[in-house]
Nucleic acid binder design. Sequence first.
RNA 1: GGGCCGGUAGCUCAAUCGGUAGAGCACUGCCCUUUUAAGGCAGGGGUUCUGGGUUCGAGUCCCAGCCGGCUCACCA
Length: 516
Amino acid sequence: MSTGEPENLIQQRKKKLQAIAGLGFETYPRRYACTHTLPEILSQYSARGAVELSAQKVSVRVAGRVMTIRPHGKAGFAHLQGDGARLQIYVRLDAVGERDFELYKLLDLGDILGVEGYLFRTKTGELTVHAERLQFLAKALLPLPEKWHGLQDIEIRYRQRYVDLIANEEVRRIFDRRTKIIRAIREFLDAEGYLEVETPMMQPLAGGAMARPFVTHHNALDIDLFLRIAPELYLKRLTVGGLDRVYEINRNFRNEGISTQHNPEFTMLEFYQAYADYRDMMALTERLLRHVGQAVLGALEFEYEGTRISLEKVQRYTMKEAVVAFWPEAGQGPKLEDLAEPRASLRWAEAYNAWAAKAGGAHEPLALAPDTAPGVVLQALFENVAEQHLVQPTFIYDFPLEVSPLSKQKPDDPNLVERFELYVGKMEIANAFSELNDPAEQRDRFEYQQMLREKGDLTAHAIDEDYIRALSYGMPPAGGEGIGIDRLTMLLTNSRSIRDVILFPLLRPEKHADEH
RNA sequence: GGGCCGGUAGCUCAAUCGGUAGAGCACUGCCCUUUUAAGGCAGGGGUUCUGGGUUCGAGUCCCAGCCGGCUCACCA
């Protein structure tokens, strides 16, 4: 590929690599036996003073990437970076000898170096390795980004994450925290008696969510397969099989748009608990959030986009209550009883559109086809009216039937289902419901979805006969929930784009001028 | 896919009204044995995203395209 670098810069460094080989160093050696990682040196010896270190010599062998070089004639300093830490080394001709000092002079920023020596403190008090022997480990043929502004170009940061990780230390902290979040979730669910499982990512039928799938093809079987849009239907099959508490943390793939909150592949936690309903899942979710906050932040409060968010308690609104509470024009919106009848949402959507047309600016009217189901309208109304206000953790519950093909109806209102979503920082973080386990009712719901599909809704759910068969063996009543790991990570790392919490977000491929 | 904004040296950024493309870091050479944005002296480095157009003259103005960002739609 074209590196975009002028050839002479790479040529210069290749010549240095030859010169290093000429000194008798292997250019790409196999291993280097470190006695410590750089963080280990810092944590174990930061407390030792200069006197202590000279009285009791500590010999070490460490390795890392050269991040600074400060030569001073016949001596010099450098910093090694590794495992998110930096350690200074001091190289002097009379301590390392002619050959190793020549190597020091041939180093470029970015090279990988092994250093053997002893710890001491410099005049300015910095813990430093007094080098006695150097080992060349690898060459950086391409120059690193600028040393104090780091790498700013967003496109290069995403495309060449390896450079971003070298140059911007906070990037490493974000992904470190992401790992801790997932670990805390596993700890929590394992302690609750959940079994972690893996279910198919390639499915003959993409179900469990309303989204367009990616299609792929298996050659030997000569069948098209879909990358999964959700693990839901497989996990519920497992509850039929007697796995009463199961969860999976893995990738979903949805062939939809890309935005600061959407990446085509994203990581989802889904968990199912037999004999529980959606209220139990709300309670569990609150405990899960507190556990993760405590484990990852050591606190139940954090800042996101300039606002303090507390995981202490979660507010609750039914979807209708939220529409009433957050109506844009005070006093002009519906009262709760005005939304009692399902078709009432149609009239209030018109009222909203009238207001949006008048208010203009960022307020878009709802774009709804004339025969849109009332429940779909209510949900659209909710999203336009209320979502932008849900900064503190909030459960929105009691969803319309029509948008919830896999949820159980409310006993006192068949137009609504026992379902909730958790919103934090204006983002949908979780989606949960009392799982529909009546095979006849499930077939009716699928058929309604099929009808929508035939009318052109590509995200409507397909009929899954094997899933209905599984339910026909008897599935225990269960609560189930999905939590978006990327968005949760955005919150807990104060990241405003999902691309900042995904190591390699999807971008259009680069065009190469030439290949080599 | 629509709207708005951006793309200048390896990196971070300048460039007045359309008038010879610059700086710092990085790189090269020389000096310097406790520096840390080390320092001093001297250098090299550009298809200004691409392709057209206007103009005596374009980084700058116009058109088209590519890539990215934000936003709307879709979606979680």
